[in-house]
């Protein structure tokens, strides 16, 4: 089977985002960008399934600016076979991304689509579930274990109380949580090889999808800032503070 892995180019995990002074968004100029960490886990899981002979081909997809090609090259260097960039300079909301992915699912007919559970920029946590809805496929969200067997996949999910396992009929949609795997680093030879792999560039219009936003961002502001309090000298002083708080 084929596996589709959508990936998003986002602010690097280790960079602290700064809100623009005019309140229109977060300043991304000259900021290090990387593949969304949950998407790296998705790419890794697809590669492991291929290495276990459960999949034949991995197609990485990104919806974004021309720079998202770098993110796709990273996926190719990790081990994806080919890539599709759906290029646009517009900010595309999860619903529109899901519609584009639905169209690609229609063309490629993958057995699995593995996505990150959320992107660390907008923190929406929607695209996988929306794609599952639009394609009428089952969804295994927040996966910490994925076990493909025959015509179904067992997905162990990280839920509020612990873990839950569901069995989904293939084809299915899976979204990754943190502990599914530890993504590999691409080796230098693989990075070189990735430059020669096929990367098709398309546009949202090629898939007939209207990406006009449904939400209008009126303002982006800094959260209320916490200021550092006091440091106490020893445990006795801490006990006294806890008593003041009525805790002890």
């Amino acid at each position: 089977m084929k596996i589709l892995v959508p990936v998003k180019r986002v602010i690097d995990y280790n960079v602290k985002p700064r809100v623009k002074a005019d309140g229109t968004g977060v300043d991304l100029a000259n900021v290090k960008m990387s593949m969304n960490p949950f998407d790296e886990i998705a790419v890794e899981e697809a590669i492991r399934l291929k290495e276990a002979s459960k999949a034949e081909e991995i197609i990485a997809i990104s919806v974004g600016t021309t720079k998202a090609q770098e993110t796709l090259r990273t996926a190719l260097a990790m081990g994806a076979d080919r890539a599709i960039l759906v290029e646009t300079d517009a900010e595309v909301e999860p619903l529109a991304v899901a519609k584009i992915l639905k169209a690609i699912v229609g063309e490629e007919n993958p057995g699995l689509v593995i996505l990150g559970k959320q992107a660390i920029d907008d923190d929406s946590n929607q695209t996988g579930q929306m794609l599952a809805a639009l394609t009428g496929r089952p969804q295994g969200t927040f996966a910490s274990k994925v076990d493909v067997a025959g015509d179904s996949v067992a997905v162990t999910r990280e839920v509020d109380g612990g873990l839950e396992t569901v069995k989904l009929a293939l084809p299915a949609i899976v979204t990754t949580d943190l502990r599914l795997n530890e993504p590999r680093y691409a080796s230098l030879p693989n990075i070189m090889k990735a430059k020669k792999k096929q990367l098709d560039v398309k546009s949202p219009a090629d898939y007939g999808v209207d990406i006009a936003p449904r939400l209008k961002t009126l303002k982006v502001a800094e959260p209320p800032v916490r200021v550092a309090g006091v440091k106490v000298a020893d445990v006795d002083a801490l006990v006294a503070k806890l008593k003041e708080l009525g805790v002890a």
Binding site: Q126, G128, Q129, A132, F142
Partner: peptide, 18 residues
């Protein structure tokens, strides 16, 4: 985790941005 799992599926079926 239940709400996050279910709501986007509903939103997409209603053609609504969550």
């Amino acid at each position: 985790t239940t709400g996050k799992n279910v709501a986007p599926r509903v939103a997409a079926l209603l053609d609504v941005a969550q």
